[in-house]
Amino acid sequence: MSFFWFVRHALVAQFTRVPPLDQFVRHMVDAGVGSIGLLTLLIFFAGLSLAVQGYAAFVRFGGQEFLGLFCGIGGIRELYPVMAAVICGARIGANLAASLANMQISEQVEALEVMGIDPMNYLVAPRLWAVSLAMPLLCAYADVVGLAASYLAAVHQLGVNPGNFMAQLRGIVGWEDLAAGVFKGVAFGWLVAIVACYHGYRSAKRDGAEGVGIATNRAIVHSAVLCIVLNMILSAILYV
């Protein structure tokens, strides 16, 4: 089964029929709510780090008052969406791949086929919808947490003027940046889901437990790499 065959059939399944709603809701909750704890923790530290690094870099030539600008561009445009995608992608993608691979090796997918239910419609389509809708929400949430952390670090730890920080932030970050972030989120979400579903779906009964491990590993690595590369391409298109 080639990746392109899989993508083509997944797209047909995703856009020609209404996905089973209970499955969609379950995966939306799994992907979205399930990732919030992890995402909050990691983005908070990333936001603090971003401010500290920016400060360390700018203080060398006396530009520490430009921290708001740096955190706005570095964080909102780049770091938070792609980090949310990589972190949530690792978690969500691994879960999707592991659960589908497990269904394959225990013949549950074949059981669906024999019951006359298309696994593409029943299993793949709701996962694609759920993750591509959950990811932009997670990216937007990451923006909020990350900025709050950067602000905290800048103002309370590094002694940057709060008014100045906020003024610069407002000056540089517009609605179009947030919209771009949401757009990136949808693309990342779909990519993570399709890669994970592909690796999970491709496992076969004879692969056994090992197959689940391999599918999980590939889903994590491929989705992380693809999200980072896609981010570069999207940034080049959106900001050049």
Binding site: A98, A209, G213, I220
Partner: peptide, 25 residues
Amino acid sequence: GAAGVGKSANNTVVYTIILILVADY
């Protein structure tokens, strides 16, 4: 069983990412 293998692989990545980011800061 097999599902547990996936979970271990997944948790390894999640735990180390947490560690890396916190330590980095």
